[in-house]
């Protein structure tokens, strides 16, 4: 479902970041561990098609991202890849429901209020449907972000430090929800983190060196 080969990326043209090859199968759940500065976020952005690698290739569901044009890549990402960031961002002018509707619209999917309500309900934020994102707590925001990443039934869910801002209780809950939902949607889940609390919870692990 998700493969990389000889991925290399450089910010300044001199120091080259070399990434280990990754191969995740459909429905698998992976943890990508690394200290700050090891290039985890860069790798996640490469996997999500937010950056283009200097060398090597990312293949998602049989499609090589290298071969897509900019706008094709945007659309492919919208449909197939759900991304959750360390800090949840929303379109501030819209309510939670409208943000999720926007995600459906931008990915070219049909607007389904049922799907949105169902997802938010499953993530225990159903009552926040009509709230503005700014009025939610950090934990609630992160759940809505998960709902948004899932709303288009992506093949792959990428999560960048989804728990770093959360306390232990929220951390456990969010990870559990992420796993549950990924399983329910049969999506491949890849979590990038330096959060030691997660180590024991995943058996598929990749560790990035300094």
């Amino acid at each position: 479902m998700l493969q990389t080969k000889d991925l290399k990326y450089s910010y300044d043209g001199k120091t080259m970041l070399n990434f280990p090859d990754i191969s995740c199968k459909e429905g698998e759940r992976w943890l990508l561990l690394g200290q700050s500065g090891s290039g985890k976020t860069t790798l996640l952005h490469l996997l999500g098609g937010l950056r283009t690698a200097e060398e090597g290739d990312v293949v998602v569901g049989g499609t090589s991202l290298k071969n897509l044009s900019k706008s094709q890549l945007d659309q492919y990402r919208g449909k197939k890849i759900g991304i959750i960031f360390q800090k949840a961002h929303f379109v501030k002018a819209l309510t939670v429901e409208e943000n999720l509707m926007l995600a459906q619209n931008l990915a070219g999917q049909k607007i389904s209020k049922e799907r949105i309500e169902d997802l938010l309900e499953r993530l225990n934020v159903g009552h926040k449907l009509k709230s503005k994102p700014d009025s939610l707590s950090i934990g609630e925001q992160q759940r809505v972000a998960i709902a948004r990443a899932l709303v288009n039934k992506p093949a792959i869910i990428l999560a960048d430090e989804p728990t770093s801002a959360l306390d232990d209780k929220n951390c456990d809950e969010v990870i559990k929800l992420l796993e549950q939902q990924a399983q329910q949607e049969n999506a491949t889940l890849l979590i990038v983190t330096h959060d030691g609390r997660l180590k024991e919870k995943f058996k598929n692990r990749i560790t990035l060196d300094e």
Binding site: Q75, G78, H89, F90, V91, L102, A107, G108
Partner: peptide, 15 residues
Amino acid sequence: YELALMRVMGATQAK
């Protein structure tokens, strides 16, 4: 951020 986010969600540059 929200504009970048919209790109992540599938909005093209033209959009």
